[in-house]
Design a protein around this nucleic acid. Sequence first.
DNA 1: TATGAATGAGCGTTCATTCAT
DNA 2: TATGAATGAACGCTCATTCAT
Lengths: 193, 193, 193, 193
Amino acid sequence: MNKPIQKRTLQTRARLLEAARQVVEETGYPALRTEEVVKRAGTAKGTFFAHFPDKDALMDHLIGADLDAILDHMQAGSAPNSVVQLVESLMPLLRYMGAEREVFDVIIRRSGAAAIEDIGPIAKTFERQVVLLMQWLDNSAFRRDVGPDLLAEGVQAFVVQTIALNFCSLHNTVDLPDRLRPYLEAWLTPSPS
Amino acid sequence: MNKPIQKRTLQTRARLLEAARQVVEETGYPALRTEEVVKRAGTAKGTFFAHFPDKDALMDHLIGADLDAILDHMQAGSAPNSVVQLVESLMPLLRYMGAEREVFDVIIRRSGAAAIEDIGPIAKTFERQVVLLMQWLDNSAFRRDVGPDLLAEGVQAFVVQTIALNFCSLHNTVDLPDRLRPYLEAWLTPSPS
Amino acid sequence: MNKPIQKRTLQTRARLLEAARQVVEETGYPALRTEEVVKRAGTAKGTFFAHFPDKDALMDHLIGADLDAILDHMQAGSAPNSVVQLVESLMPLLRYMGAEREVFDVIIRRSGAAAIEDIGPIAKTFERQVVLLMQWLDNSAFRRDVGPDLLAEGVQAFVVQTIALNFCSLHNTVDLPDRLRPYLEAWLTPSPS
Amino acid sequence: MNKPIQKRTLQTRARLLEAARQVVEETGYPALRTEEVVKRAGTAKGTFFAHFPDKDALMDHLIGADLDAILDHMQAGSAPNSVVQLVESLMPLLRYMGAEREVFDVIIRRSGAAAIEDIGPIAKTFERQVVLLMQWLDNSAFRRDVGPDLLAEGVQAFVVQTIALNFCSLHNTVDLPDRLRPYLEAWLTPSPS
DNA sequence: TATGAATGAGCGTTCATTCAT
DNA sequence: TATGAATGAACGCTCATTCAT
């Protein structure tokens, strides 16, 4: 009953993704058109929709791959030993998510899934993020009074908040890291009297 | 210089808002169409766009009014003296923002403004929120080592995070208040060893 | 409540029909594409669908107009006094309906309406046909033992049968008039012993 | 030269026909999709087209088989001795052909063949119909002034006309038999003064 | 202010049919 | 024979927004 996925299928899918990536590089996400993607991939439009339920799913894959690459890089580095280092380690993520409004919107929209079967690439990276953060935060440099999972989710919340505020020009006189740091200091190294 | 706003203008605007509110009540935000709104209001499409720059602005007004009513209610109550009370006080807000995905998206999109002159109703309620939270948090029941503005923004971040996770069925086995409380306890009453 | 139809509306509609007629003349009905029609009419695609619910409705109008012109011509002539003359009078109709399979199919599909409100142009011409035939058949050259309405409907039945058989190459060795005449003789001038 | 048809081939064909029949029963002809047929038959799409030149051919087989069964039943009965009996004998045919618009369209389309070699199942039943009607009409209860072949074709024409008018709700207040009878009385037992 | 026909670029869909394996 | 991914040319539709009246 398990139909083995054919090599051709994978090739076609790769061609579509590669074509889409090219288009995004040249014109950005808002100008990504399925028409253009299939033209470059040399496939029929029907083929596109046989591989991706809609354009959003394609963007999910593209952005998910980018986020995975960033996480790979983060994982390859050493665990941060302070809030300052943590902020620095998170900057690639921040910059990517905050660079284009369109990208941020897609990420927010797809960071969670309505059902297990439709967890997409972006949602998977959010799970990876939490796992990685939990490892990093399991460190004496940070507070230990609450579980690392809660701590990690909190960091995510502040990352999103930071980017959201940054898109709002009223507040974006402050740089991304300078905005994130106070939050994380208060969150990860509280020192109440 | 101040053109006196004509009575007819205000009436038309009110009819449009009322019609829109009806449509939302009957079909929900995702199915809100200008076509239907103007039909019910008895005006032409062009009239709609003479009153609102775009559909988002209409939703901004509708949702902004709802949020204002919730804030009125929150402000009328007494200031919370504990995290548990704070969570309870925040629940109407949580429930409203978490009820419909579309509403949440609009709120996120319009919670900040690109320029001072186009702060919309929703953005105004976010400022009200911060002001109210700052008053509430200026209380010995909560940590005092960081400024109340940062504290308030943090609460907002956790509110958003809580709702976002709730839209994701993987995590929504936990009730909204039970999800929010641990965050706020760790954020507002930390006790690191 | 009766919105007067604007002149512009009628002009746009006329442009669409004219453009479609051109395309049909140049390439025939099977090659009629909405894309090409709106391009020639200089309108947007959305405009097309604001005027016609679908392509079938457009063809209904085009073919209906043709049939009306043929009926005008038939009506302008004198009433036939024999089956031979009747067949001759019907020939323009026969030839038009039997020239293109696509046209015949549309005519069959739209010659009746599912509800009064969606009687289209073609269905209207079928009603005109019956009225005209009733006038023609109310003539001492034809049988009088049955009502002219039944007689007229019978003629329609044989016209359709003749064309249908003609599309079938097994039988199309006989010319249209030579196929129709025996039916009509037996139908309109029976002489049973 | 005669390749013996393999058992597997026949089985596959039977499975496809059976699957198609199921789909039609459950969803009707308009919703008949090759996709669904092959899924149920447990074959690949290509296999389908190795057995049937196109989908129309499949429907031709399905409907042709139904029509054959109806003709078998008609043939098993005794020859009608009056128009009333004839109408009654024809009713199963009328009801089947008039039940679904899609079925009627397919029957009209395939009732004749473009060439002798591609006479399909439906076209064969039309020839059977004519033969049977010729036998039935060769009866002193009906007119003898015209040949039985013409008479039979005329009956077919009126059957089609009756069904076509019935699909048109404007006229379908009259029952099928009540609509057909007057035609056949005028056609088969004329009594002009 | 009010009108409402027109815009228009793009999306998602269709689905019988083909063809390389 | 059997497979099933790929085809591909339309179609229908969307719907916020504009603009001439």
